[in-house]
Nucleic acid binder design. Structure first.
Lengths: 396, 396
DNA sequence: GACACTTACTTTCGTCATGAAAATATTAGG
DNA sequence: CCTAATATTTTCATGACGAAAGTAAGTGTC
């Protein structure tokens, strides 16, 4: 298959910091970088030179970046050559594999999806390799592959436990590497989405950042000090036991009144169906709630209050600089935004700073993009896999 | 007053790391230190030499540290000379000032309390200076003073807002420095207690650590990456709006069913008094609940459930490696430990790792000790005041 | 007791990242 | 053309570090 892409690695610590800063925060002059990284101007000349020579950075058109032409020698912005390498990202669901091709900046340049007909690890790896081959044909400078899977993933390589695939200790990264000859990073899907948002999305540059995903289930991701905290619940799904309202609804999954029982798409559909006997889609329920249907409005209103309570609790205890609501179920915010706000207020000090809340509807390609970001982090920039040291102790 | 103590400062970054490691983690050989800090053996010789020469470290008796005599040259443990400098810590309450003298290890070697008769900043500073003088007489090598105050403290020097003292923007550190000639660090009292526990107590060596104090009010402290996260609620007290049970009791402070209304000592006393008309102490209520009195047992049981719910929420969202319960109101745990455990379980995934919960009864001298620890951190080891950059952004 | 072996620590030396300062480049404004 | 302002490069000294060799101080074996 395609030739193994040459890597710019290894980068020194300083070079890596420069590369990441430019990658994440757009074109920056050497002087800007010196200020941001706390280094001297001289060091920036030294650090950027090999990066430019290797083709990772370029000096961009000078005029564009400066709206106000100031006095003195104009600065020379540096930018990542985003197209110099491309990456594949896959999101594996129960019955589909979603694939994307991204640039270094994680911009999606192509999409490709295929149905998943077998859960046999070898067959899944075969399918991924086929998809990689098809995508690679059009994008030769492929540097690596990221794969997002629901479940517990160890060492960014082995699927330790995945309930929906019924996998245990499947060395997925190895299987796909064998077939493609490309370096592969595997990660929990929520974790991948969180990393993507931390680097390139809503959490860019933040120190404390929370991602809450609402969809078929709930996902929770915590970023502290710019680094994602590994959770022990990744393999079991979040929120089944986050009891929001002990008198709340009882649904097939999640404890009575739990976040899962009140907020997830299946739970909301179940409630409406149980009350009316009709099979309706999530979007229909939202539309009818907005239109004033009392039954749907009640369920959605309760969901909104549950979400607000959850957001307030997270804010009270974690004090994040921002919370991102993502997933397929965030349409809730448009219809029940008021209920959410009210519930947040009720569970927060009236003088407390408002919760910085951002909503982003995401589809499965966004999840796949998250996996690609993992590949970018690990393969290009040499960001270490922190899983082995995640709960290691270190001094104050 | 006493001569300004000579400081060992400035320490280089490497020296500081060594000093802190030995201070916090007890006697350590150079080889141990090399492993812990990720440095070479040679570097440790270099780094420890000036620390030993300056008297901050000593080589301890060799035999004691090694229970099992292994082969090879025996290691030479290094220890901090804890008595080489002493520190003062003060906790200011509404009507009292509690003072302690501590060693470098923050062991309390003397206590001294005085009633606070005026809230006038100048008078408070006078009193602190007097107390410092009295304590200093017996402990000459005084290196600095730490002061803990309820309320918002800025730059570890200025009391921005303190509801119980009715202060606004009082430069307390400066006032006391003028009078004593010693360097002074002022900090929020909860923050100081958290720092003390992070460095020398239950949170020693942990990455993610939560302190929850129960007393006249609630206190919440979050330590991430070994560093305390500054909260925006320090000046207003925590938990008045952490709604645990919307149908819970209503008390003079805190919203109905809030953590403050269900858990704090005044709220519990209020509930019992409202039901029985009797004025009883917190300890009496605990005793009667343990003895089977239905009224007290109900109130205490509810408090226990509230605490358990709170602990579970914190654990779910913050995922700390340990939660410390401290303050004067933790006697609750002995009487209602079962209710706490049950509530934690009900709000956690059954397979989730158990919550590492530690209880520590603390009195006002422990709060004063916390303030002394702040002084140790800042004055001796040069730990930076992170307040100005607490919410500053930095890249991933 | 001589010897090998093991582990801890020290010394020496080369490398490398860094900052300070001076030099150079490139613009604007007179 | 000259000066001021700002950006970048060059040069050089410093200092922190690791590798490797050397020394120290014990145990185990014969």
């Amino acid at each position: 298959m395609t030739a193994l892409a040459a890597s710019w690695l290894p980068l020194s610590a300083g070079e890596r910091a420069v590369a990441i800063e430019v990658l994440v925060h757009g074109p920056l002059s050497r002087t800007d970088l010196a200020r941001r990284l706390g280094l001297s101007a001289g060091s920036l000349t030294r650090l950027t030179k090999p990066l430019i020579e290797s083709g990772l950075l370029v000096e961009t058109a000078e005029g564009a970046a400066l709206p106000e032409a100031r006095q003195g020698r104009p600065s020379q912005p540096l930018d990542i050559v985003a197209e110099s390498r491309t990456f594949l990202g896959f999101k594996i669901t129960d019955d589909m594999v979603y694939g994307v091709v991204t640039t270094l900046r994680s911009d999606i340049v192509a999409r490709h999806d295929r149905p998943l007909t077998s859960h046999e690890p070898e067959r899944v790896a075969d399918l991924l390799a086929e998809m990689a081959d098809e995508l690679a044909g059009r994008h030769p400078s492929l540097a690596g592959i990221g794969i997002g899977v629901g479940g517990l993933v160890e060492h960014q390589a082995v699927v330790g436990e995945s309930p929906f695939l019924l996998w245990r200790d499947v060395p997925l990264a190895g299987l796909v590497e064998e077939r493609t000859g490309l370096p592969v990073v595997v990660e929990n899907d929520v974790a991948a989405l969180v990393e993507a948002e931390t680097w390139f999305g809503a959490g860019r540059g933040l120190d404390r950042f929370v991602v809450l995903t609402i969809g078929a289930g709930l996902g929770y991701g915590l970023v502290l000090g710019g680094t994602r905290v590994r959770s022990g619940e990744e393999d079991r799904g979040f929120g089944r036991h986050w009891i929001i309202d002990p008198g709340g609804p009882l649904t097939p999954t999640g404890e009575r009144g739990s976040a899962v029982a009140m907020l997830t798409i299946p739970a909301i559909r179940y409630q409406v169906q149980a009350a009316t006997g009709r099979e309706v889609t999530y979007e229909q329920i939202l539309a009818e709630a907005a239109a004033g249907d009392p039954m749907c409005a009640r369920v959605i209103g309760e969901a909104g209050r549950a979400l607000g309570t959850l957001v307030a609790q997270i804010t009270n205890f974690v004090m994040p600089q921002k919370i991102l609501l993502a997933g397929e179920g965030v349409g809730l915010m448009e219809v029940a935004g008021r209920a959410v706000d009210d519930a947040v207020r009720a569970n927060r000090h009236p003088l407390a700073a408002p919760v910085p809340l951002e909503t982003k509807v995401s589809d499965f390609h966004d999840w796949a993009r998250g996996a690609a970001v993992l590949a970018i982090q690990v393969l290009v920039l040499g960001a270490a896999d922190s899983s082995t040291q995640s709960d290691q102790l270190h001094g104050p």
